[in-house]
Write a protein that binds this DNA or RNA. Structure first.
Lengths: 208, 208, 208, 208
DNA sequence: GCTTAATCGAGACGGTACGTCGCGTCTTGCA
DNA sequence: TGCAAGACGCGACGTACCGTCTCGATTAAGC
């Protein structure tokens, strides 16, 4: 469904390469410095200039690899987001709960919290960045949820024609919204109530 | 529950006012110019300088009222967001659907779409702005949903101890998420599926 | 020779006056504050705004009396410059020496030293101010020197057709120049050498 | 006695220079533009902004080289002041007269007249600038006068222990004073009377 | 006493220029 | 070629003062 093959950043096009090769230590130093500056200042106040200084690298060395702030940050934070292995418990609620909790853990990282909305700004006016971000950050989550839902469908707990997209939106959207705007505390109770709502609905059941 | 009385910007404390009063026409011209520049350039590329020029006002006149871009934009867009009157159809799904559609209409405005993520950046590092934004933009929505849920509880369709907060998060979060990041098309079908999911859950029902 | 009747500042034209009279305490407070700010910051960094604040007075109250910084400062420092009574010793060198020393005393006041060149800037582009400054600061000195020279002529020590103007320039110019630019120390030795040079010339005399 | 080697501005310390070198054309364009703006507006109304615009250069390029207006102007006008070769006539009065007339020519240049008092303001509060100004503008004059006096001493016309400093002050001070404040016309007659006064004194001579 | 006019403090207003920051591009000399 | 260094043109920042203009509150003088 999603190729996962997009470039986030600065690999040279395939043509023959001559002359001095790019220093991989510079690359890593830049990524590290980017993460540091993001954690300290947040997205809006992070500057290429400060990243270069922190990394002990010339500005040109950064611009040679990434065209602008957005892709650099995307690559930097994509190195930090691993949902980790999610268990197959055989219980849909438990599986989805584990997923939501994993997302919450990521969003509670100060660096991530400082950074994501800034990325969203860029995304709003930059389709290339949008697809890069999507493929690196959203697609993997989508895959996780798809697996969980596939298993639930196989167990007969969910309708086979369920719209997976909207389920993902219903699980991730509220978490993001709470993290960024509404301020609802992001804890295990939140995760449970959310999963419960998504699975069972809020409607009163005759037999409950 | 929510007073709604916070100041977004530049009202002087009520104490004795002496000297020339602030010109309300300047105030309005600034708000109008801000909205124009937001629509044209989006949040990140909107500059105070251009707003001042467009409004025919000195930069200092803007800084005298708002300390920075964030609060100015908050006030400007808060003048533009009216969910309008929501009908009482007697049907919970229909009422919530009308609410979600109203939110979608707002988020599809180009100006709003250009602006909200930028605001989110500021919010991430500025608690004052966060509470201002919450009280002006989020609280009114919360009130609308509360009314709908109150009526549904009264009809016996929902449990009386339902957590309203999370319902709001579940309705608004996915819409914001889709608008900003995931790119799921925001149309009536989306609204219907979302409301359906929230009300009934995704779980397969014995009798369905 | 010089009337001394020029206006330095803001007396109203003679016409009938009704309404509230100008507060002389405000006038004095402004002059005092001006002198303070001059002493602290020098001419260039003195601002009308700071003078108003220091004097506890509105800016308009200053502008009502003085059209700009130059005349205000002129009036302020002209209250500070009194050469004092110069003695008639019967000895031309002693008399002129006393005059030069008095000028030196004035120019060594920090406030004066900070202020005079700034005034010169204004003077360079403002003939009205130039004549005000001349009449308040230069004319009195001229008068003093004229008296001394008159007495010397009467004693037969100087030629009757001596050009008084250039003598004044030769006495005051070097002192100003040393104070502002060349940095030659302004002490009694300087005064003595200067007077000696002016009176006797630098030329070697046969009989000396 | 005076090295003449002080820096007026913006030369980097001698250490290893890496990176792009400063563009000498920009340097020259800035100096030229500065002189133009000085001639038109005088010191006080000359702005860095207008100089940058006139020179076709970014403001930062100016600030990179000169910390402020004072040193910039000092360097600019120091390129304009050449007393020219002074003749050795064998006659002390003629030599000094030529020197004074050369100074007068410089001070009658509109740009110089507009500029010098402004510089004096800066000098009054900035010792670094003072020494720069001294070494570039005053020291060369001092050298000229020294040569003239040396020759006169060699001819036996002046005492060998004459204080050269005060002679310089006595020649330059009155000219500056007349130019800036007293308003005595600066013409050849002034030069003659001044030199005569300095050489012979104002005192009546028995045999004259 | 009432009117009228000027002054007072405070402070908003349209401006101009400031000096700084960061951008993304462009040399320069070494590796 | 890559790289560190750093100058460059540029755009915007947020601030400081400028000199002018309301305001409401005093404070006389003339009616």
């Amino acid at each position: 469904m999603f190729s996962g093959a997009e470039q986030v950043a600065g690999d040279k096009p395939p043509g023959r390469r001559r002359g001095r090769r790019r220093d991989p230590r510079a690359h890593q130093a830049i990524i590290d410095a980017t993460l540091e500056m993001l954690a300290v200042n947040g997205y809006a106040r992070m500057t290429i200039e400060s990243v270069a200084a922190r990394a002990g690298v010339a500005k040109t060395t950064i611009y040679r690899r990434w065209p602008s702030k957005g892709p650099l940050v995307t690559e930097a934070i994509s190195t930090q987001i691993h949902l980790g292995g999610l268990p197959d418990t055989g219980d849909t609620r438990a599986d989805l709960g584990a997923f939501v909790r994993a997302v919450i853990v990521v969003l509670r990282t100060p660096m991530i919290r400082h950074t994501l909305p800034g990325l969203a700004v860029e995304v709003a006016g930059n389709p290339d960045l949008a697809s890069a971000l999507t493929s690196h950050l959203v697609a993997p989550k989508r895959a996780r949820v798809s697996e969980i839902l596939d298993r639930a469908v196989a167990r007969g707990e969910l309708e086979p024609d369920l719209d997976y997209e909207i389920v993902l939106d219903m699980l991730v959207g509220p978490v993001m919204w709470s993290a960024l705007v509404s301020g609802t505390p992001l804890d295990d109770a939140f995760a449970d109530r959310l999963v419960d709502g998504v699975v069972s609905g809020i409607e009163r059941r005759p037999g409950s």
